[in-house]
């Protein structure tokens, strides 16, 4: 990443002994930078995004807006997945692949969700969730 290329490498901080890693069949990749980037800053951002999504999910009246909030929550999950992928150094792209899966499933979910909303709208001429209370007493 040219954006993040450091001018002079700092002291390398490795938490793993290279020999120990080699014994486990893993390759030690010494990073070029980003030593002071904490994992937690991403996790907290993810938690914030997720909570905002929860808030929107609970408070919005329009079904489309509820779906938008769900997208926000899924996005929070993606942030966490990619951050963990970066954090665990030999994850073999698992985090990113699952982020891709989440994106795919989210796309499917939006398609179905909007189809359902469309159907509700057709039947009730409103897409407000609080008017859908057929399940009550």
């Amino acid at each position: 990443m040219p954006l993040l290329r450091r001018r002079k490498p700092r002291k390398k901080r490795c938490r793993h002994d290279s020999k120990e890693l080699e014994a486990r069949g893993l390759e030690l990749r010494i990073p070029e930078g980003g030593e002071l980037v904490l994992l937690n800053q991403f996790l907290i951002l993810g938690a914030l995004l997720f909570s905002l999504g929860v808030y929107g999910l609970l408070v919005r009246r329009n079904a489309v807006m509820v779906l938008l909030s769900i997208e926000l929550m899924l996005n929070a999950v993606n942030v966490n997945l990619v951050a963990f992928e970066s954090f665990l150094r030999n994850a073999g792209a698992g985090g990113q692949i699952f982020a891709i899966f989440v994106i795919t499933v989210a796309a499917a979910e939006v398609g179905i969700g909007l189809a359902i909303i469309l159907l509700i709208f057709r039947n009730r001429t409103s897409a407000n969730v609080d008017e859908l209370d057929l399940m009550k007493w």
């Binding site: 929860v54 999910l57 609970l58 408070v59 919005r60 509820v66 969730v129 609080d130 859908l132 209370d133 057929l134 399940m135 009550k136 007493w137």
Partner: peptide, 17 residues
């Protein structure tokens, strides 16, 4: 108690959260 069953999806979602 029947008032708990409001039929409002979001209240259920809130309870889930």
């Amino acid at each position: 108690t029947r008032l708990l069953q409001t039929g409002k999806v979001q209240q259920y979602a809130g309870a889930t959260v």
